[in-house]
Nucleic acid binder design. Structure first.
Lengths: 339, 339
DNA sequence: TTGAAAGCGCTAACAA
DNA sequence: TTGTTAGCGCTTTCAA
């Protein structure tokens, strides 16, 4: 493991010049830089991030905190963030809070504070005021993705608008009995995403003058399994079966499609289904949806962090742009009774 | 951000003693240790990993290299590894090779060598000899999960046996026309998993004296989509339709179930289907499968690394145990024509 | 059991 | 443009 002085000797310069030449900070003549780079390459020199980090106070590493990894949305955001970070020469260290209370405390009290990360990205996480405070206290830039974070720059689609768009699509097709899967059991819950989507659904109905029927709002987990179970219940009743279902996630929506099939109902002739996400399986199931772009959200989060970490960079103009979403119409939605 | 000397002052000892008291290395009187710990807690002191790492040469961080994050198997292994590492006080930094060639090179040439990680876990990766060599050269302990890695300790289920078990289950039920989805297009391919599973399939047939019919071995990607497409093709032919399908992954198997349904075939009455994995959706689809336990594989990989990193630890006796797998019979398999 | 002091490998003033 | 040098915050001999 060669050190900087070995490079310096070979290039016939001082270690300071090597540092300058390799890091790009400070002025070095092109000729010198070339010699240094060649010498470094020749002996396979790579800077020690510890030594560099100790001297500069920066680590070129960002922490990503997630509630679990095993879900399409999260792993996609992480992928997007990882690839963007790598482009900037940053590492990504992952903190999975799935384990529960003790694990969570130690992440915030120890891991994130070891000066190991320059910044943190929190994905779909409700951080307590204390947690946010302890991070901000050490002046670590921080951005949230997909979850409201008091006092922190947050990146998230406009869930109300997204839901309104999905519901509006169904209304435009002529549906009036539209059920909603998702909702939110606990009105005081800190996590607003399900609530926001339900509100968008209601707003769309109201815009169209369609009364909101509380019986058509079904609380469900955001999983395929629960989408299936609740949709089966909903569609199984011979009475007032809705002509369309708006599910708050694609996984639920796919569950609903499968439930409809198992009941002998045709999608979209007997029931239209739309979701939110554009999950990797949605195309396969012909599911109409409002796409959000999680990998892009991860990249965006990184951009914002880089702007804060390197204020010299031209401030990216897109930083304040709301996140994009897009209606994707496939074969799971049509006019009521139509095909 | 308080430093070690502040703790030392408050505790009325030297920084050396603080270091000893907090790290557990070296002798410190209980009374002194207690004072130090109290002082550290009082001011919220956390060691700087850079400084500590620079002084010791260790980082308490392991690198995990994966081909992509967005698949159940990978994210599950990573989850298992992450939680095990956190238990040992280690961080996990993630290197996703999904981006392609250039990214891959820079991971191996730069990122992993910055002395930022103490060890690396490579998941389902075919590393080139050069890549392995460059890691071993810097003496980083390394373990592979789920992929053969020349010269590296590798953790992986016995794919031949797993396939044999799955196929054997079908044979025991009385099936003789058993198709296989998976295979391996390229006989010279470096990645042996599909080949091994195909060989296990063939071995089971041969054990039972059933001739291997090459027409029943279908090359397919390990995805739900391709499982669907190939199974539809296979089952759509009215002639010699097999009575059972053994898919090399659960995602393919689920695709096959959906294909059967779309063709009006009942599972398992008209066709039995079995996969490998015990994917999170397999229970929902009633899929019989041979479970492997990816989160456990991640934990095991960490154990092995810890044994190498801290040779003082009692060598875990389980380290050489082959990875477990288990036949899980659900409703997708039955006797031919049976229910 | 504890303290003094010399690094760990690099960066960034400051000087030249 | 380049070199000298004093740290960055901790760990670890060596002495006491």
């Amino acid at each position: 493991m060669p050190g900087i002085d070995e490079v310096a000797m070979r290039a016939g310069v001082s270690t300071a010049t090597v540092s300058r030449a390799l890091s790009g900070r400070g002025q070095v003549s092109p000729a010198t830089r070339e010699r240094v780079v060649a010498a470094a390459k020749a002996i396979g020199y790579v800077v020690s991030s510890n030594a560099s980090g100790l001297a500069t106070g920066r680590t070129r590493n960002v922490g990503v905190v997630i509630p679990f990894l095993n879900r399409w949305f999260f792993s996609s955001v992480v992928e997007g963030a990882e690839s963007a970070l790598m482009g900037y020469g940053y590492d990504l260290t992952l903190y999975n809070l799935g384990g529960g209370g003790e694990e969570r405390r130690s992440v915030f009290d120890d891991f994130l504070l070891r000066k190991r990360v320059d910044a943190v990205i929190a994905i779909s996480l409700e951080l307590t005021t204390d947690e946010v405070a302890s991070l901000l206290e050490v002046k670590k830039p921080m951005v949230g993705v997909g979850g409201p974070l008091a006092g922190v720059r947050t990146l998230s689609i406009d869930d109300v608008e997204v839901a309104r768009l999905a519901t509006g699509h169904l209304i435009a097709l002529g549906h009036r009995e539209i059920a909603h899967l998702g909702g939110n059991e606990d009105p005081g819950a800190a996590f607003h995403l399900p609530t926001n989507r339900r509100e968008g659904y209601q707003a769309a109905l109201e815009d169209a003058g369609i009364p909101v029927d509380p019986n058509l709002i079904i609380y469900a987990d955001f999983t395929l399994q629960d989408g299936y179970a609740t949709a089966k219940q909903l569609l199984g009743s011979p009475h007032k079966r809705p002509t369309a279902i708006f599910a708050a996630s694609d996984e639920m929506a796919i569950g609903a499609i499968l439930a409809a099939r198992d009941l002998g109902l045709r999608v979209p002739q007997d029931v239209s289904v739309i979701g939110i996400d554009d999950h990797e399986l949605s195309g396969f199931f012909g599911l109409s949806t409002v796409a959000q772009f999680p990998a892009l959200q991860g990249r965006r989060a990184v951009e914002i962090l880089m702007d804060q970490l390197h204020p010299t960079r031209a401030e990216s103009p897109s930083v304040n742009t709301p996140l994009p979403f897009e209606l994707i119409v496939r074969s799971s939605t049509a006019t009521p009774g139509g095909g």
